[in-house]
């Protein structure tokens, strides 16, 4: 029980703060030093290199992508976490349900990012239970923006978290995507968005295949292609891994809610994608036969992540 005036209302973040257990992310708007952040290593604090390659000992999540489709949004993310130039984990997840009708995906320092997602999920559910109604989609995006803003001191020390928020707006009856910057800026994306180390490649792929009113099936196909292309170009992005059965997370949010595609379906989509990519290559070779040498390799060199 809180005294009148000191009541945190429906905000879980304020509740945690009132109870004295504020986490860094919950400290939105205060410049207090984060108790558990290590002292800045010489030259590491806030430098560009620490933002991209990460600090030693800190795992980084990489590529996430979201695009609007006719009935909602498709959100996808690869499964790799890196520590510097090594692979730290092959199966982490970066796409989560925020609540029934929205998804949150994360790129950046994995630890604070997953903590932020947990806090965000709890916050949305807490609000819903205390108030008896859900926040608007924009309200949810603003909540997340505050958390990103609260993480700014940590971001300056190389623990940046860049989320992506997407969901189905039940009032406007459409899918919506929100991107964020490190300072807590919240921007609505009208078509698609991708971020993380392979974000550029993913975004370019989506850009080339995107058109208005894309059906859900086509949107999923495009998201899968985007992650494949990102993994093809970016060493920190993981591709499909049939040996271990690890595939990117692909989720659809529409009127009926958040739905994660089963791994088998994602695997099938990668097989289809590779089939069409191979066909494309072969067709190109038939129409433009190598002019210089008749002995040009007919078989593409084997790739380790190609499904058997």
């Amino acid at each position: 029980m809180f005294p009148v005036g000191g009541d945190p209302g429906p905000s879980f973040v304020d509740l945690v703060r009132a109870a004295g257990g504020a986490s860094g992310i919950a400290e939105a708007g205060t410049a207090a030093r984060i108790p558990w952040s290590p002292p800045a290593a010489p030259g590491a604090g806030g430098s560009d290199s620490s933002m991209t390659t990460g600090r030693p000992g800190v795992w980084h999540g990489t590529t996430i992508v979201a695009l609007r489709s006719l009935g909602g949004v498709v959100v996808a993310g690869d499964r790799r976490a890196t520590e510097g130039h090594t692979i730290a984990h092959r199966g982490i997840e970066k796409v989560f349900p925020a609540d029934r009708h929205s998804a949150v995906a994360i790129a950046g320092a994995a630890g604070p990012a997953i903590e932020m997602v947990r806090l965000f999920q709890t916050q949305l559910e807490h609000y819903e239970k205390v108030e008896g109604s859900t926040l608007s989609l924009e309200g949810k995006a603003n909540q997340l923006a505050q958390m990103v803003r609260g993480n700014l001191p940590m971001a300056m020390e190389g623990l940046a978290v860049l989320p992506l928020f997407a969901g189905y707006d039940l009032r406007r009856r459409t899918g919506r995507i929100f991107s964020f910057d490190l300072a807590g800026g919240r921007y609505e994306e009208l078509e698609y968005y991708a971020t993380g180390s392979g974000g550029r490649d993913a975004k370019t792929t989506v850009k080339l295949g995107y058109r208005d009113g894309l059906g859900t099936e086509k949107a999923i196909e495009l998201a899968v292609n985007a992650l494949y292309q990102a993994a093809d170009e970016d060493s920190a992005t993981g591709g499909p891994d049939p040996l271990r059965g690890i595939y990117p997370v692909v989720a659809v949010v529409d009127e009926s809610g958040y739905r994660r595609l089963p791994d088998t379906e994602v695997a099938d989509r990668f097989v289809t994608l590779l089939g069409s990519l191979a066909q494309h290559r072969n067709a190109a070779e038939v129409t433009n036969p190598p002019a210089t040498s008749a002995n040009a390799p007919q078989i593409a060199p084997e790739r380790e992540d190609e499904p058997s």
Partner: peptide, 17 residues
């Protein structure tokens, strides 16, 4: 209703921690 809200707070805090 005040007790209900206190319960939600207790449960969510515990589940989060």
């Amino acid at each position: 209703d005040q007790l209900r809200v206190a319960g939600v707070r207790h449960a969510d805090t515990k589940g989060f921690a």
